[in-house]
Write a protein that binds this DNA or RNA. Structure first.
Length: 553
RNA sequence: GCGCCUGUAGCUCAGCUGGAUAGAGCAACGGACUUCUAAUCCGUAGGCCGCAGGUUCGAAUCCUGCCAGGCGUACCA
């Protein structure tokens, strides 16, 4: 509809210019908006305002000229008004909306989809939590954002791959091995002094026990080898747990990428060689430094320590280089805000290795505060005492958790209240939205029981949809494809969430005001056609968010 | 100190990338279930959009400077 009106305006402006009613043919892009206030019409444009300076004419005069030259053969427009400083408001004839309803039914699961991405290859990397302990709520937010972002991009015609990067190499893994090893010694009766830098959580002890309780695995005598073995087994076990937790959250990956595999394939060395040949690393104080300050970072960064060990940054450079080598056009990393200091150096490394830094994007989500009834839940990672993501999902359910994570812009800190998440009221919008789907399912069931006719398009039935409430729902649903697209463009999944809440509110209001199943078969058919369209849009949106659309509640 | 994020109704948050009278939910108050699911709806009340300048037809939105909170500032990740 926006397109239709836009074309009408463009043609009108041309015609006005040819007739001399407008002095200049230098027209800007026509922008059509859906006004908030009903008395501002169904659609509106600020075209005349934007053009005022170029035309050197008062905005209202320009608006006048354009309105006069609008040629509307299909009589889509009921009337136009020039308002305020020079807005043109369009009032669309009620029946002109109906064809779009048909479109929703025809496109069905694909309504809202587009080819916008043109098959561009995007990799979304998210969670990528170190395999040194279970996931907590913060990771849940990253998982929800990353996963639905990937869904949305795929729905918009991008070719998307989801990846989890496993830091299964380096010092943290060593520390993990040592922690497990020491707990094992403890189990066998030794008293040991558990170092502060080791992982403190109870899960380390449980892990140690489970790994060696069946007697299949035996520790080598040599301590270094024993620690090494503990590290390997423990990391594998933890990753398995992470995978299961994410599975329970409805999050899956196309690929789990091991950091160690980069070393094994010599890719970290290769990346360092490449940096050397480009002369963007240098030696100082026995270490090798990456000249990231030349690419906008605030200082240079070490890639090889004095000890000869590479830093995580070195393998991260190699990793992202590898992503580009795999042919991705765009890389999106989803990180917690506590990593934001890492962005400039990663951007720098992308540029330094010869790639466009704009093709590497980071979604930085702010941290999650876990609450219960408004009171903070203690989350001491150091002491290893924290509520895991699994705990949260078990308590509130995956749907509620996922939806809640997406009810805020990711740049806004999130208070996640366990008690609110469990509530089945308007406090907790998941159920509010899912309830729409369940309610409509129920209506359809009832209609089938009473054989009140199918849900087919026919002109008479559609013509029964002539109240402002009918049109309001249709107009809302027509905005959905644009919402999805903007959600992809700006990488903001929460736009879908808010749209769903708005559509849900409109439906609930409609439901309370208008009976769908009536004595009049034409009206019934029309309304069934309308509400089942709503049902489809709700289901499509929830699907993008990774939330189920229940038939019953 | 420097960098990033945030500041909008009592609380939790939106605000379509500069548009018209700033919107929801919760909490408060008053209403609606013999009717398709009340996990719902209708109404009332609630605002110096952190503060001060600037940019222009027009600013919650863009720029500058302050103020407050969070995070970061390693040869940790």
């Amino acid at each position: 509809m926006k397109q239709v009106v836009k074309t009408l305006i463009e043609k009108a402006a041309q015609a006005a210019f040819q007739d001399g009613a407008l002095p200049s043919a230098d027209f800007p892009e026509v922008e059509i908006a859906s006004p908030k206030a009903d008395n501002h019409g169904d659609l509106a444009t600020n075209f005349a305002l934007v053009m005022a300076s170029v035309q050197k004419t008062a905005p209202r005069k320009i608006a006048d000229a354009i309105v006069n030259y609008i040629d509307d053969p299909d009589r889509i427009i009921e009337k136009t008004e020039i308002a305020g400083p020079g807005f043109i408001n369009f009032f669309i004839r009620a029946t002109a909306w109906l064809p779009f309803l048909k479109e929703i039914h025809e496109k069905d699961m694909r309504y809202g989809a587009s080819g916008f991405g043109k098959g561009e290859r995007i990799q979304v990397e998210f969670v990528s939590s170190n395999p040194t302990g279970p996931l907590h709520v913060g990771h849940g937010r990253g998982a929800a954002v990353g996963d639905s972002m990937a869904n949305i991009l795929a729905f918009c015609g991008y070719e998307v791959e989801k990846e989890y990067y496993i830091n299964d190499s380096g010092r943290q893994i060593q520390t993990l091995g040592k922690s497990v090893y020491l707990r094992l010694k403890e189990l066998s009766g030794e008293t040991i002094d558990f170092p502060e830098e080791c992982y403190q959580g109870d899960y380390i002890g449980r892990l140690a026990r489970s790994l060696f309780s069946d007697g299949e695995e035996v520790l080598p005598e040599d301590e270094a080898a024993a620690v090494e073995k503990c590290a390997r087994l423990a990391a594998a076990q933890i990753i398995q747990g992470i995978r299961e937790d994410l599975d329970g959250f409805g999050v899956t990956f196309d690929r789990w990428f091991s950091e160690q595999s980069l070393y094994d394939a010599g890719k970290v060395d290769a990346a360092l060689v490449e940096l050397k040949s480009r002369k963007i690393v240098y030696e100082k104080d026995g270490a090798i430094w990456f000249n990231s300050s030349a690419f906008g970072d605030e200082k240079d960064r070490v890639v090889v320590r004095r000890t000869g060990q590479t830093t995580y940054f070195a393998s991260d450079i190699a990793y992202h280089l590898d992503k580009f080598h795999r042919g991705f056009d765009r890389l999106i990393d989803v990180w917690g805000a506590d990593h934001h200091g890492y962005i400039p150096r990663m951007k720098a490394s992308v540029e330094a290795t010869g790639h466009d830094p704009d093709r590497f994007q980071v979604i930085l989500y702010q941290l999650v505060n876990l609450l219960r009834d408004g009171q903070p839940v203690a989350m001491s990672t150091r002491a290893g005492e924290f509520v895991t993501l699994k705990n949260v999902i078990d308590e509130v359910g995956a749907d509620a958790a996922r939806f809640l994570f997406l009810t805020r812009h990711y740049e806004s800190p999130l208070d996640f209240d366990l008690e609110v998440a469990k509530r089945k009221t308007n406090d907790n919008p998941v159920y509010y939205v899912q309830y729409v789907h369940a309610r409509i399912s129920s209506i359809v069931r009832k209609a089938n029981e009473q054989s009140m006719g199918g849900i087919e398009w026919n002109e008479d039935a559609a013509a029964a949809l002539n109240t402002p409430d009918d049109v309001h729902l249709i107009k809302l649903m027509m905005r959905y494809p644009e919402i999805v697209r903007n959600s992809a463009v700006y990488m903001e999944p929460h736009r879908i969430t808010f749209f769903l809440m708005e559509l849900a509110a409109a439906f609930h209001a409609y439901y309370n005001k208008h009976r769908v199943l009536t004595d009049d078969s034409t009206t019934t058919a029309g309304r069934l056609y309308l509400v089942t369209a709503v049902q489809k849009v709700i289901r499509n949106g929830l699907t993008l968010l990774g939330v189920s659309a229940p038939e019953k509640m």
